[in-house]
C-alpha cells in the first residue's frame, strides 16, 4: 500500500526532482485511555515537487489532520515529516514558525485575510513578516494572474468571497514557498468563483512550477489536481492520477461502501 515518490516521479519529466513533502509512518492520536481517538494510524505519503495533489476522504477520515501535521501546524504522535530536506518532527515552535514562514504557503477555507489590511498588504504580509522584499516582477505577475490589479487598495470587507480567496492565493504564491497547503479553498464559494480559484491554482503549478497540496471533499475540485490520494479512518487507502470528477466520485463511492 506504500506509495513512494519514485512511482510518481517515473510518470513525467517535470516530476524528476526530489519530493517536496514526505511523510513516513505518520500517526496522530488525541486523548488518553479509553477515549483515545486515532486520527492518523500510520500514513506514508510523498508529494512531488511541482505537482498539484488533492487529499480526499469522507468526514473524519483524518484528511485535515494530515494536512495540519504535514504543514507543521500540529504536532505528530509518531512518524516523520520532511519538507524538502528539513525534518519537521521534533522542531520547536520557533523553528517551525520560521519554517512555515520560509517554505510553506497557506490557503484556508475562510478567514484568510486580516480585516485591517488592504488586499495588497494582505498579499505582502508573509514577506513583511519574514522581513523580505517582494520580487516586484513576481508580484505583478501574480496579481495579473489572479486578476486583482484594480482591487489592491480594497479591504477584505469590500471584496467578494471569490476575490478574497484570490487574494489568499496570491498571498500564498508571492513568497514562492516550497509547498502550498490549501484547506478546502473553494468550500465557501459558488461554483463559478470556485472554478476560477482552482484554475489559478492549476496555472500556478503549470506555469510557476508551484507545489500544491489541497484538502477537499469536492470531487470536481479534486479533478483539477494531477493526483488524488484517498484517506479512510486515518489510513491512506487509494490514489488515482489524472483524475476526472467521475473517477474521483467512483473511488469515493467504493470507499464509502
Amino acid at each position: 500500500m506504500t506509495l513512494t515518490g519514485g512511482e510518481v516521479g517515473a510518470r513525467g519529466a517535470r516530476e524528476k526532482a526530489a519530493p517536496a513533502v514526505v511523510a513516513k509512518g505518520l500517526t496522530k492520536s488525541y486523548g488518553r485511555g479509553d477515549t483515545t481517538v486515532h486520527a492518523l494510524r500510520g500514513v506514508d505519503v510523498s508529494f512531488a515537487t511541482g505537482a498539484f495533489t488533492a487529499i480526499m476522504g469522507p468526514s473524519g477520515s483524518g484528511k485535515s489532520t494530515l494536512m495540519h501535521c504535514l504543514a507543521g501546524l500540529d504536532t505528530v504522535s509518531g512518524g516523520q515529516v520532511h519538507i524538502g530536506d528539513v525534518e519537521l518532527t521534533g522542531l520547536g515552535d520557533k523553528r517551525l514558525t520560521l519554517l512555515r514562514r520560509e517554505r510553506i504557503g497557506f490557503i484556508f477555507q475562510a478567514f484568510n485575510l486580516l480585516p485591517t489590511l488592504t488586499a495588497e498588504q494582505n498579499i505582502r504580509l508573509p514577506l513583511d513578516i519574514a522581513g523580505r522584499q517582494a520580487d516586484q516582477d513576481l508580484f505583478d505577475r501574480v496579481v495579473e494572474t489572479v486578476g486583482l490589479r484594480d482591487r489592491l487598495g480594497h479591504r477584505p470587507t469590500e471584496l467578494s468571497g471569490g476575490q478574497q480567496q484570490r487574494v489568499a492565493v496570491a498571498r500564498a504564491l508571492i513568497s514562492k514557498p516550497q509547498v502550498i497547503f490549501a484547506d478546502e479553498p473553494t468550500g465557501n464559494l459558488d461554483s463559478r468563483s470556485g472554478a476560477e480559484v482552482l484554475s489559478f491554482l492549476r496555472t500556478s503549478v503549470r506555469e510557476l512550477g508551484q507545489t500544491i497540496v489541497m484538502v477537499t471533499h469536492d470531487p470536481v475540485a479534486a479533478s483539477y489536481a494531477d493526483r488524488v490520494v484517498f484517506l479512510r479512518d486515518g489510513l491512506l487507502v487509494s490514489e488515482i492520477h489524472r483524475p476526472t470528477p467521475q473517477s474521483v466520485l467512483d473511488t469515493l463511492m467504493k470507499l464509502e461502501a
Partner: peptide, 8 residues
C-alpha cells in the same frame, strides 16, 4: 492565521 503565516 498570522501564526500559520509565520508570525512567531
Amino acid at each position: 492565521l498570522l501564526r500559520a503565516l509565520g508570525l512567531t
